[in-house]
């Protein structure tokens, strides 16, 4: 028997792809996925997996920040490797004892200058160092320049390896900061392995929950732009300083909610 007849049975509703990024109209071989669609999925998953396991290049980020006269400190969470990081979220939320000592010594040294700093920035790998490599420096450098112009005082930027969001609470409180802002790699999606999240917390201290934070998510090329994310963060910072709080009580009024009335057209019933 010859295999001259093509095995792939295409789905003739390709035009529906204009309405969604979902993987529709993939076609089939028998009842199974055609080779190309199968391998495209494998590629997306491979990228997401690589992003999860990529080692955070804190030296490079640090060098890039030093180049624009920004000071940095590099710390490590209590999760010493990726394996324990993934299984023990509690360890990723606190500093290793060495890193805690380091920040405590810094504080001792500057004791005479006991005034609070306005903002401590933390850059943590989270679940995607790739997100940080792609986005963190480009986002933070113009942001800090702008904040300094408007008289915000800013602590040295802390780079945290194997960190989860809440590690910012301990760091912010050790640096005596009024507000901590954590830039962190989000859990990679199949089509977004390099998505960065931004979390802001007023009066950081260990033991706070997510209810105390404001979050700006999906910052990346193809997601929320740096300009838009900066705009929202600036708003949150100003409101937070003014009202001395953050989290559920501080709603992000800048968010243009999904317009509920747009796009209610539905080809399945509107005819």
């Amino acid at each position: 028997m010859s295999a001259a007849k093509p095995s792939i049975i295409p789905d003739n509703w390709q035009e529906l792809r204009q309405f969604t990024a979902a993987r529709i109209a993939l076609g089939r071989v028998g009842v199974s996925l055609p080779t190309n669609a199968m391998l495209e999925f494998q590629l997306a998953h491979a990228r997401a997996r690589d992003a999860v396991h990529l080692v955070f290049d804190a030296e490079k980020i640090s060098a890039q920040l030093h180049a624009v006269e920004l000071k940095t400190l590099t710390v490590q969470s209590a999760a010493l490797d990726r394996h324990s990081y993934l299984q023990r979220p509690d360890l990723g939320r606190k500093l290793s004892s060495e890193s805690r000592d380091l920040l405590e010594r810094k504080r001792e040294k500057h004791k005479e200058n006991s005034e609070q700093v306005d903002i401590a920035f933390v850059i943590a790998d989270g679940l995607s160092a790739l997100a940080i490599h792609h986005n963190a420096v480009e986002f933070i450098v113009p942001l800090i320049a702008q904040l300094q112009k408007t008289n915000w005082s800013i602590a040295p930027i802390v780079l945290a390896r194997q960190g989860r969001v809440a590690i910012g609470d301990e760091i912010g409180s050790l640096l005596n900061a009024k507000i901590v802002v954590v830039l962190i790699g989000e859990r990679p999606g199949l089509s977004s392995p390099d998505s960065m999240g931004i979390y802001m917390t007023w009066a950081p201290q260990s033991g706070l929950t997510d209810a105390a934070r404001n979050c700006i998510s999906n910052v990346r090329e193809g997601g929320l732009s740096f300009t838009e994310a900066s705009f929202r963060l600036n708003y949150l910072l100003s409101e937070s300083r003014l009202r001395k709080l953050s989290g559920v009580e501080l709603k992000d009024e800048t968010v243009t909610m999904v317009d509920l009335d747009s796009d209610t057209r539905n080809f399945l019933i509107d005819n």
């Binding site: 509703w13 969604t20 990024a21 529709i24 796009d263």
Partner: peptide, 17 residues
């Protein structure tokens, strides 16, 4: 048939598929 912004046509496309 989930869609990140609940767009009606996007949901309908996944339903038909």
């Amino acid at each position: 048939p989930n869609h990140p912004t609940d767009a009606a046509a996007g949901i309908a496309a996944s339903i038909l598929d």
